[in-house]
Write a protein that binds this DNA or RNA. Structure first.
Length: 274
DNA sequence: GCCACTGTTAGCAT
DNA sequence: CATGCTAACAGTGG
């Protein structure tokens, strides 16, 4: 479930642990993890320092001296962890980045192996297939611009929230939570959203993302930050994973349906279909 | 043992 | 452009 708040938490916990350190080498243990083409030789990383760690959508960007960047996508079960180099590798660790000092190395673990790593030229990153076409950041999008993303679209509101080309970083958990907070039924056609609905969706989407970041993300199973710590937001989820439980607002049992192949949780009374 | 289910998204058919 | 299905993979729980 690494969605925007989890990836942001990974970035914030990882940055102070690796920024400024000089790379000694990279080990790729699962060939398919790295995207080719546009995977420059990982050997080229040796001797260069980490400049910065940042997030775009659900992806982590690590920029390195000399104009190279590493891009990671955690997909469902990926983890970026700082671990002591002496610690044995488990079978789900697919990539390691070691440093010239004696500190922790960076490890990429991914039980389901859906995640990827790309090594790109920083200058070409924005135009790469990983980033081109990605929608705006919800926390950097104003009310009007947010509304414009939905106007003239024909899809269902939840599907659009999940579409990374429309808006970046929102996944299944926060889509359900934002729709609940905004009192919008997940199947509502975007064409039917009024300005007042879009205002609430904008405000509540941002609110739930900010609160989730403050709680350091949601750990329902695999998610951990760079130090291996769980988040706390799972305790604050109001509908996700709560089918059958009473709605925290009105007491009606939360329902679960499938929308676009994704489990979808909502209150049939607070979120009226329109 | 088998089946259903899981947070993502690319690719393909319709 | 949109939707729906499958696949990639491994683990968990019934």
């Amino acid at each position: 479930m690494p969605e925007l708040p989890e990836v942001e938490t990974v970035v914030r916990s990882l940055a102070p642990l690796i920024r400024g350190r000089k790379i000694s080498g990279a080990r790729l243990r699962l060939e398919k993890l790295i995207r080719r083409p546009a995977a420059f030789e990982l050997d080229a990383l040796a001797g260069r320092r980490i400049l910065d760690v940042s997030r775009r959508g659900k992806m982590v960007r690590i920029s390195v001296e000399g104009g190279l960047s590493l891009v990671f996508h955690l997909k469902m079960t990926g983890q970026l962890l700082a671990r002591p180099a002496a610690e044995p590798l488990d079978k789900h660790t697919h990539f390691c980045l070691a440093f010239r000092d004696d500190g922790a190395e960076l490890r990429f673990r991914d039980v389901r192996k859906f995640g990827f790593l790309a090594c790109l030229r920083t200058a070409e990153m924005a135009a790469s297939k990983e980033f081109a076409g990605l929608g705006p950041e919800p926390l950097e999008t104003g009310r009007e611009a947010f509304a414009a993303l939905f106007r003239g679209r024909r899809g269902r509101t939840k599907s659009l929230l999940l579409d990374q080309r429309v808006i970046a970083g929102i996944g299944n958990i926060y889509a359900d939570e934002a729709l609940f907070a905004a009192r919008i039924h997940p199947l509502t056609g975007a064409v039917r959203l009024r300005t007042s609905d879009l205002d609430r969706l904008w405000r509540e989407t941002r609110r739930v993302l900010r609160r989730a970041i403050a709680a350091r993300g949601t750990s329902v199973s695999d998610y951990r930050d760079a130090e291996g710590l769980e988040g706390d937001f799972q305790e604050r989820l109001r509908v996700y994973g709560r089918a059958g439980e009473p709605c925290p607002r009105c007491g009606t049992p939360i329902r679960r349906i499938v929308v676009g192949g994704r489990g979808t949780h909502f209150c049939p009374r607070c979120q009226r279909r329109c």
